[in-house]
Each structure stands twice: as structure tokens, then as C-alpha cells.
């Protein structure tokens, strides 16, 4: 098959390597020439190194790019973590179709940052979905899906890595099935009652709200935790007087409290306790004045963490 890869990030690089080792022909790669985080390791650079043609990521929004796809007799367009919406003409140009690898268990968690949202809502399972692409984002028929458990220690970063790991075999499976014939491809329509799209925003504008349950605070913190790397949601912000800091790790203690939410309590083996609506949460690592620190170095019993804007 002739395959056009549209992608970004590590998942895109891994899929390109997979394609390069397959019996299929990579027609070219559509990606961002400019690295998002300044990293020299990009899909664009990997494609160039492997000798593939490249086009800028925005090309897929241009209806005239469909002509290029037809000229190159592309059978399959694979969209791997690219955030650009394909024009209708481009969507219709490949002979077999366009498929997207989404790091979420569709029909739930369509849209942006599905890993963060799933952790934020305290999900105990997550998944990655390979689906056919339609004009509506993340709404096409499900081809293959892999679900996996999330444990309390999981963070945004660990779940994102798991999505890449679970997603690659789905792409291999798609290629193997298509090699046997299009008629063998499963296509399950998404249940619209469970379909939910999440956008670019971050809950509470990225601020920690102490007047909610400890479970919710802990989930928000781990959803944002891509440490030691940059988080798509940034790091949750908190404030004690004029000390503004970001929380990297926090965990539930199971100890109930009647103290006003935001009250800083005693240190424990993990960090220092802060009152939430129902129980103490222990805050471990923070970032203060651009430096990684133990919360205990910055917070003291009796401090009070305010909620921004309240």
C-alpha cells in the first residue's frame, strides 16, 4: 500500500519507524518543520533522515493538497497525533481512507488532551482508539481499540507513554487487515450518547481549588504531572500569601479534617498536609521561584493557601 503519514510527537516517530520497516511504501510525511518544544528530535527530522519527502503540517488544511495525494496514488492516510483538521477534499483523496490514532477510549474523551481529562475525572481505565476519519473530529467509526487500567500512581506522562505503546500494535493490525482486504476491516459506529469532546481549556484555569474533595485535588495534580517534562496543561498553581508555586506531586492521606480548605497542617512522610473539603492531602514536590523543591521547604503549619480569585 502507498501510505501518507500525517503526524507529530513521539507517536508519529514510532509509527514512521514501523512503516519504514514494513513492506508498504511511505509516500511522504506531513509534519511540523519547527519543533514544538525546541527539541531536535522531531517527526520531520526523522523523515528527512530516512529519506522521505516532507510537507508542512498545515498542508492537510489546503484542499489543493488532495491533488498531490491522488497523483501519488495514496491508499491510506494515517493521522498520528497531528492537531490539524484535514480539509474535506484531503479526507476524500486516499483510495482506502484516512485513519486516526487517538489517545483516548472513544466515544469518550474525544478532542484534546484526553489523557489529562481522564485522570482529572479519576478514571480507572483508559484506552487508545484507531478510527476512521470523518469531517467531524474524533467521531468516525472505531476500527480497533485497546483499553488498559490506570492506577493511582499513574500520571499524565505515564499514561501518555502507555497510549503510544498500546497504539502501535493497532496500526500494525490495521495494515495487516487491509492487506487481506478492505472487507475484513471492522467499523463500529460510535455511540453518540457517550461521545464527549474536550477542548483546549484547563480546569479552573490551572488553579488548585482546595474546597473540593482530596480525591479531586489529587487527580488534578497527577493529570498535570508530566514531570520532569512539560505538561500540556501546565502545572497546577497555588498561592500562600505572596508565594505562588506549582504543585508537582500530591497524594491523599485518608485522614479526615474539619480545618478550612487550604489550611496547611503538619508534615508527614510524603510532604506537608493541606486541608481539602473532606480530608488532608499531602503535597510533596513543588516548583517555587523556578526551582524544584520539597513543599515542606516552602510551606509551614498554619499557612493558608488561598484560592485564586476567591
Amino acid at each position: 500500500m502507498n501510505i501518507l503519514l500525517v503526524g507529530e510527537e513521539s507517536a508519529g516517530i514510532r509509527v514512521l519507524r514501523l512503516l519504514a520497516e514494513s513492506c508498504h511504501r511511505v509516500v511522504g510525511v506531513v509534519a511540523s518543520p519547527k519543533p514544538r518544544y525546541g527539541s531536535p528530535v522531531t517527526l520531520w527530522n526523522t523523515a528527512l533522515k530516512l529519506g522521505y519527502r516532507t510537507w508542512a503540517a498545515e498542508s492537510v488544511k489546503d484542499p489543493s493538497f488532495a491533488r498531490r495525494i491522488r497523483t501519488d496514488e495514496v491508499d491510506l492516510l494515517l493521522n498520528i497525533h497531528s492537531l490539524h483538521v484535514l480539509s474535506t477534499e484531503v479526507l476524500q483523496a486516499p483510495k482506502i481512507g484516512c485513519f486516526n490514532l487517538h489517545p483516548g477510549p472513544l466515544p469518550r474523551y474525544a478532542g484534546l488532551n484526553p489523557v489529562c481529562w481522564a485522570l482529572y475525572f479519576g478514571e480507572t481505565t483508559h484506552g487508545v482508539t484507531l478510527h476512521g476519519m470523518t469531517a467531524e473530529i474524533d467521531a468516525g467509526p472505531i476500527i480497533y481499540q485497546s483499553l488498559f487500567p490506570i492506577c493511582e500512581e499513574d500520571t499524565g506522562f505515564s499514561v501518555s507513554l502507555r497510549c503510544i505503546k498500546e497504539g502501535l500494535p493497532l496500526v500494525s493490525r490495521l495494515l495487516a487487515t487491509l492487506a487481506e482486504g478492505l472487507e475484513n476491516l471492522p467499523k463500529v459506529s460510535q455511540d453518540r450518547n457517550h461521545w464527549h469532546y474536550y477542548g483546549r481549556g484547563v480546569p479552573h484555569g490551572g488553579q488548585v481549588i482546595w474546597s473540593v474533595n482530596a480525591r479531586q485535588v489529587a487527580n488534578f495534580v497527577r493529570a498535570c504531572n508530566f514531570s520532569p517534562f512539560l505538561s500540556p496543561w501546565g502545572m497546577p498553581q497555588a498561592r500562600a500569601g505572596d508565594r505562588i508555586f506549582s504543585i508537582i506531586t500530591a497524594k491523599r492521606t485518608g485522614s479526615s479534617t474539619n480545618s478550612p480548605p487550604g489550611t496547611v497542617g503538619c508534615p508527614d512522610s510524603f510532604g506537608i498536609r493541606v486541608a481539602c473539603a473532606d480530608e488532608w492531602i499531602s503535597v510533596g514536590k513543588i516548583k517555587f521561584e523556578d526551582k524544584l523543591a520539597d513543599a515542606i521547604e516552602v510551606l509551614h503549619a498554619g499557612d493558608y493557601l488561598e484560592e485564586h480569585g476567591r
Binding site: E9, S10, I13, R14, Y37, T42, F229
Partner: peptide
């Protein structure tokens, strides 16, 4: 990975030598 590491004990995270993309590539 196309990055120069100053020394074998240099902190790859703190110095920003390794970002998430490079980390996944390193695992590979």
C-alpha cells in the same frame, strides 16, 4: 538524539538536555 551531554553525571532533566520526545526516543 542530537544533543551533547556536558558530562556523564550531568542532570539530563534539570539541564533540559532531555525533553519528552527525546526521552521516548531514548527508550527506543
Amino acid at each position: 538524539l542530537h544533543v551533547e551531554v556536558p558530562s556523564y553525571d550531568a542532570d539530563l532533566f534539570e539541564t533540559g538536555v532531555l525533553d519528552s520526545l527525546q526521552f521516548v526516543e531514548l527508550l527506543f
